[in-house]
Each structure stands twice: as structure tokens, then as C-alpha cells.
Design a protein around this nucleic acid. Structure first.
Lengths: 140, 140
DNA sequence: AATGATGCTTGATTCGCTCAAGTAATTCGG
DNA sequence: CCGAATTACTTGAGCGAATCAAGCATCATT
């Protein structure tokens, strides 16, 4: 399991609970991926393929090197969750798309990653709106 | 940079902003560590050494294998940020403690990781209390 | 004193991530 | 239309994080 990101010394209560949230979220994500024998990175990429798209688009959206995406996609392809076809419009490019099995696994992952859903469900509709507003404001 | 953890398909607005928060938090943590040439894991371990403690205690608190901690501590030691002395009470154990330089770097990291601090600062005291309460409730 | 548990390290392996180079295809300037 | 940059991606090398299986030394128990 990945080490948590924080805290050095939580100066306030809010910061502490914020850290807690991030930690629990990250661990839940990782655990959900592990249930399906996926790494978090694999689950992430798989989740971004609702439409077929090029490697570069993925790399840019995920803010990492293209070669990183190559590796992850190669593994997803080896697992039969993804295909990589040449782009007819630009034969340099490769279009990545989920296979039916990829769709299925992605769906199962979405089901397994209950954290955000159940956390939100503990709040009333009004509270959810409040939380959204507060976090938006905090994020600036 | 590490790939984000999410989203498959954000079903609600709250979930989306929650994901955003986690993503920005994680990236900020990583960036702050990188400023000091530390990996997130190294920054994390360094931050847990306000008091000297054994490897096992660290592993348990961080929820990972002891051998993982060994590696990270070895690197921190090589960087001169940490010492590893035999435990006089139990000579199997090794007590890890920050060096003065380790203290300094840890302090600088705390300064560099502004995200939680500045996010919270955008809220009034009342809003901070609200947010704390909401997140606590959501975390269950 | 022997047996077993504990605390940590080592070695092997996998994955994520980055950087530097390389290849192929496209675009652009002349 | 041709050569030069640019773009899209892959490959290879290298590092850190993480896990697992073994191993070693040191307690702790009987």
C-alpha cells in the first residue's frame, strides 16, 4: 500500500480531517483496484477511456510522460482490457479503446470503489451542497 | 507525477469536487517533496519522526511492510536526514531519529506544502468548523 | 536450555515514473 | 515538391516504492 501523503504536523483540526479524507480516499481507490488485480494507475487509465483516444491525449490529461502511458497501456492490452489501433487520420497515432472485457472490469471497479459514494451518502442533500460549496471555495 | 486516483465516472457534483480535492492535494504534496529532492514516501517517513521510534512502529502506522520502511530509511540515512541506532532496551530493534539536517528539511517541507494551509485560509473560522463537521460526518 | 516469536534486513520481482534516444509520419517553408 | 522541423509514440536505462519469501539475531517462554 502506498504511504500516506501527510501530515508533517497538522496545525489545525481542519487540516487533520482533510488529510484523513485524502488518505482514506487514496487507500480505498487502491483497494478497489486491487480487488480486480489492477494497479491504481491501470484503473485510472481504464477509467479515462469512455471514448477511444490517443496516447498523447491521455498523457496530457493525466499530467505525465507519454512513455509512462505506453507502459500502462501495454499492460492493459496484455490483460485484454484495451486495444490499440492505428489512427487512420494520422498514422503516427494510436487510438486506445476499452474492450468489452475492459468495459466490464471498469464497471466492476466503479462498483468496488464505494468510498466517495458512501461518504456522500452520509450527508443530506443540503449538506452535500454545503460541502461542495465549501470545498470549491477552499480550492480557490 | 503520480496518476490521479479517479474518477471512473463522477456521478454527482460532490464526488467530482471531492476527487478534485484529493488530486490537487496529492500533487501538491508530491511537488513540495520534489522541491527538497525527496520522494513523497521519504517526506512522509521524515514527517513521522518528531520522536525517535522503531522501524516496526513506523511500518504499522503507515500500513506497509517493514522491508519497505527499511529501504526508505536507508535512503534517508544516506541523505544524512536520519540516524538509525540500536535500541538499548531490545537489541533487535533500531531506533530511527531525525538529524538536525533532517529537522531542517522537514521544516522546509512543512513550509513548502502550502496546499492544506492556503485552502483552509480561504475559509472563515465558521466555515472551517462547518467543513470539519461535514467531512467528519462523511467519513463516518 | 530448547522452542518459538519478534524486529529487522536481504534478495528477487513487479510496477510506476522519468529522461534520453530513436523511429515513423506529418507539417511547413522555400 | 523537397528537405527540415515537429509531432506521436516506443524503447531502453535507471531509480524508487512496494510486496513476498528467507534469513539472522535477539528476546521470551516454558
Amino acid at each position: 500500500m502506498a504511504l500516506p501523503n501527510g501530515p508533517v504536523a497538522t496545525s489545525s483540526e481542519v487540516e487533520a480531517v482533510l488529510f484523513d479524507l485524502v488518505d482514506v480516499y487514496d487507500r480505498a481507490y487502491e483497494a478497489a483496484a486491487a480487488e480486480l488485480s489492477l494497479s491504481p494507475a491501470q484503473a485510472c487509465v481504464l477509467g479515462r477511456l469512455d471514448e477511444r483516444r490517443g496516447m498523447g491525449a491521455l498523457a496530457e490529461e493525466l499530467g505525465c510522460d507519454a512513455s509512462n502511458i505506453t507502459q500502462i497501456v501495454v499492460r492493459l492490452e496484455a490483460l485484454g482490457l484495451v486495444t490499440r489501433e492505428p489512427d487512420p487520420r494520422d498514422r503516427r497515432g494510436r487510438l486506445v479503446a476499452r474492450t468489452t472485457r475492459g468495459d466490464e472490469i471498469n464497471q466492476r471497479f466503479a462498483t468496488a470503489f464505494t468510498f466517495a459514494r458512501t461518504a456522500v451518502a452520509r450527508l443530506s442533500a443540503a449538506e452535500q451542497d454545503q460541502l461542495t460549496a465549501l470545498l470549491r471555495k477552499a480550492l480557490g
